[in-house]
Amino acid sequence: MTTPTTGSLRVPGSTLHYEVRGRGPLLLLIPGGTGGAAAFDGVADDLAAEYTVATYDPRGIHRSPLDDAEAGQRVSEHADDALRLLDRLSPGEPARVFGTSSGAIAALHLLTARPERVARLVAHEPPVVEVLPDAAEHRALLARVQETLRTQGLMPAMAAFAAGLTKGGETADPQAEPESAPKAEPSAGPGTERLLLPPQAAARAEQTMADLPYFVGRIVPRFMAYTPDTDRLAALSDRLVLACGQDSRGELPYRPAAFLAERLGKELHHFPGGHTGLTTHPAAFGEALRKAFHA
């Protein structure tokens, strides 16, 4: 794996850690969840054969600390962080952008707010559930997760969230996590499992667990309450690619992208794996992403 060049960027309320590899036009990769820049380790080197690939830890995640650890989070603020990275790394040219999950929500806002800075956006499973006809059910899921977090703690809240995502947002018992529920990557498992991992993976597991309360408590409720400007997206649809995991059908993260693709008259691209295909199928996922930018 190529050692990237690292840098830091001061933004209002945080200092972002970012990494750069390769040469060519800029490709900014925006992670979802608690993944940070490391989420793209499996694809960045291959993409760097064609692009200058920039990855980063979003504000509040890992090496991008918040000035105020209790600060509320807004999609527009995260999108502005991405814009500031584009301005630093590609000031004279619009860039290609990829976002996954919550990172795809920030990327959609970036496209609608500053379209002149985005040459093409690939948005993978942005959970913008407010566009769906049954949005009220998903608001109830989010409220249930936050109440579970407040009264029972992190892991029961994660179980309720995972079950709701798998079932499309249906009511789920937070104490019972079905076998089909999306799991955190193995590095985020119980401490006894992490002891069996290589040191680098174990360290990443510890960081994932450390970032989960912030993600579940402050990113999830604000990002999944976000409503994209669909009229603006329609006007910019020539530079938007909507993508889903081929194994995600029937799950909540799949539905908003599929709904938007139909509404905008766009082809829905299918990437290998499910919502976490970037982690489970990195080589095939990276190749699908490369093709999406050439489609």
Rank of each mutant, 00 (worst) to 15 (best):
S237P: 04
A235L: 03
A205T: 11
I61A: 01
A123P: 08
L233R: 00
L260H: 09
R218F: 11
L149Y: 09
P25W: 13
A261W: 03
P12C: 10
L154V: 14
A162L: 01
V128P: 04
S237F: 12
A292Y: 04
T15N: 11
L28G: 08
G36I: 08
L28C: 01
A292E: 03
D87Y: 10
L16M: 11
A162S: 15
A48Y: 01
R290V: 06
A201M: 14
T2C: 10
E116L: 06
T192A: 15
H270W: 09
V128R: 02
V129P: 08
E116H: 13
T55V: 13
A160L: 04
G99I: 07
E287I: 13
H270R: 14
V118L: 05
G286L: 00
R63G: 10
V118E: 10
A235Q: 13
A235C: 11
T148F: 10
L83C: 06
R150Q: 13
R150C: 10
V20F: 02
M224T: 07
L289K: 10
A205V: 08
F285L: 08
A54G: 02
L264G: 06
S187L: 03
V145E: 13
S248N: 13
D68P: 07
L27P: 02
D80S: 12
E125N: 04
P178A: 13
T230G: 11
L132M: 07
G250A: 00
T276I: 13
H109D: 15
P228H: 09
A79G: 14
A54L: 15
L264K: 05
P198E: 06
L89H: 02
E116V: 07
S64Q: 04
T5A: 12
V131I: 15
D81R: 11
T5Y: 06
A157E: 14
L111A: 10
G92S: 13
R88G: 04
P174I: 11
L197I: 09
G189Y: 09
P221Y: 04
T230C: 10
G7I: 04
D247A: 15
A140H: 07
A143V: 03
H275F: 01
L165T: 01
R96I: 12
L121R: 05
A284G: 03
A181Q: 11
A82D: 07
A261T: 01
P91F: 00
D238F: 00
A203R: 15
E193F: 15
A140W: 04
D68Y: 10
L268W: 00
L27D: 04
V129I: 14
T34K: 01
A202L: 06
G36A: 12
A162M: 13
G273K: 03
F40H: 11
P221C: 08
A288H: 01
E287N: 11
A283Y: 12
D57W: 06
A203F: 02
S102C: 03
E206R: 09
P221W: 12
R120S: 03
P127A: 08
L9F: 09
A49F: 00
E287R: 12
